[in-house]
Amino acid sequence: MAKLKSYKEIPIGGMIEKAGNSEDFKTGDWKTFRPVWNKEKCTNCMICPVLCPEDCIPVEKGEKPVRKETDFDYCKGCGICAKVCPVKCIEMKEEAGFNE
């Protein structure tokens, strides 16, 4: 997360002075549980990237697509990826244990 600014540093009245700023808005800080992915056990079956409701599991394209680490800036910790994984290589762990 970007460092929060003081009341002396922000535009008045909540005005947003820069257009197209939604890209800077990270929504991943809601999560209570974080999916911890075991890369070694993963078979790159591509079930979790397809079923992720936030589309935040990146995939490297190619003849055989490869799953990359979850984008925690947007992951809400819903746990669907862990639930659908056929080889159980994703474990949901309490977010409080991670310091970002």
Binding site: L4, I10, G13, G14, M15, A19
Partner: peptide
């Protein structure tokens, strides 16, 4: 030429700061 957003959502992170500005004004 200089687009802005007026009256956006502000939650726990910035609402308090904006109120302090209003009180100071």
């Amino acid at each position: 030429d200089d687009p802005v957003t007026v009256g956006p959502l502000e939650l726990q992170d910035y609402f308090f700061e904006t109120q302090k500005q209003r009180a100071d004004a």
